[in-house]
């Protein structure tokens, strides 16, 4: 029981970081119709910015601010220089151009920071484990990540439903030409949305980098999972991204924790370990294929 509740928390925490990544991706796709593989690079950039600033100043808070602003700035820059030219192109060209951006970003980061991973030290206020009701010990920082994820989800919901920017975003999703005709500066709106998505990715990178490691290529596995999330949730839907992120996070954590022991009941331990581990890592892709075969437009997607 204790094991199960700890793994549920792990799944939630993992899901929240996926949500931070997926929110930006799905927003950019919903508003601009762009498929952006370089989103993982912005995640990596945020992590490096946080590691570098926190290392230089000794302040984790400054590191977080740096990650948000560096990723947002890089996002805006990339949007103006490259991404803008891709909106009218087909998906193939978008995939390719942003794949090219990954190469540039990754090798650039390797050039600046080297190949050896960087490691952050947790701020003392957030380090260590806390005792939860029910007697479960759980790392405080991971709880904080769950909190940040919920806060961002609420913030995004308020932003989209209550603010002027949100109205424009929704209008842009519905009918791009009309928004432009109404006198909204569409170029600035797009840059702002892209920078917002980038900032969230940067924040996710900084948080994950703090408990794991900051290294070149860290964005790629997360990027693929974020795509899995938005595809399951329905591309363009923030709500879908949130639900799907938690679904994927929980599936992954519980699958990894429970499958080997489940198989061990019917077969010999080492074989069960092998099959359980294999199936555990395939599980989310099976989930995604299943969802798409059942609902080709994702859980909350509009019909394509």
């Amino acid at each position: 029981m204790m094991l199960l509740s700890e793994q549920v928390l792990n799944g939630l925490q993992y899901g929240m970081t996926l949500f931070l990544m997926a929110a930006g991706l799905t927003l950019v796709f919903g508003v601009m119709g762009l498929i952006n593989l370089a989103h993982g690079s912005l995640y990596m950039l945020g992590a490096f910015a946080c590691a570098w600033v926190a290392g230089a100043t000794g302040s984790f808070a400054l590191g977080l601010i740096a990650s948000l602003s560096a990723a947002a700035a890089a996002g805006a820059l990339v949007e103006v220089v490259v991404i803008r030219r891709l909106y009218a192109r087909d998906h193939l060209e978008q995939v390719l151009a942003t794949f090219a951006l990954i190469l540039v970003f990754s090798e650039g980061a390797r050039w600046v920071f080297g190949s050896f991973p960087l490691y952050l030290t947790l701020p003392s206020a957030l380090s260590g484990a806390v005792m939860l009701p029910g007697g479960l010990q759980y790392p405080l920082f991971r709880l904080a990540i769950i909190g940040v994820g919920v806060a961002v989800a609420v913030g995004l919901w308020l932003l989209i439903s209550r603010t002027r920017l949100g109205i424009r975003i929704r209008a842009g999703e519905a009918d791009r030409e009309m928004v432009a005709a109404l006198g909204v500066d569409i170029a600035r709106l797009y840059t702002a949305v892209f920078a917002l998505g980038a900032a969230l990715a940067g924040l996710a990178g900084a948080l994950v980098g703090t408990i794991q490691s900051v290294q070149v290529g860290m964005g790629e596995p997360v990027l693929i999972l974020a795509f899995v999330v938005i595809v399951i949730g329905g591309i363009g839907s923030i709500k879908g991204a949130f639900v799907a992120a938690l679904l994927v996070g929980l599936t992954d954590a519980l699958g990894k924790a429970l499958l080997p022991s489940l198989f061990a009941r019917v077969m010999e331990v080492s074989a069960a370990n092998g099959i359980g581990t294999a199936l555990g890592s395939m599980l989310i892709y099976i989930l995604m294929a299943g969802v798409l075969i059942w609902r080709p437009q994702g859980l909350y997607g509009a019909r394509a």
Partner: peptide, 10 residues
């Protein structure tokens, strides 16, 4: 069964 981005991703 899917098209567009969904096809790429699936």
């Amino acid at each position: 069964r899917t098209t567009g981005v969904y096809f790429i991703m699936v």
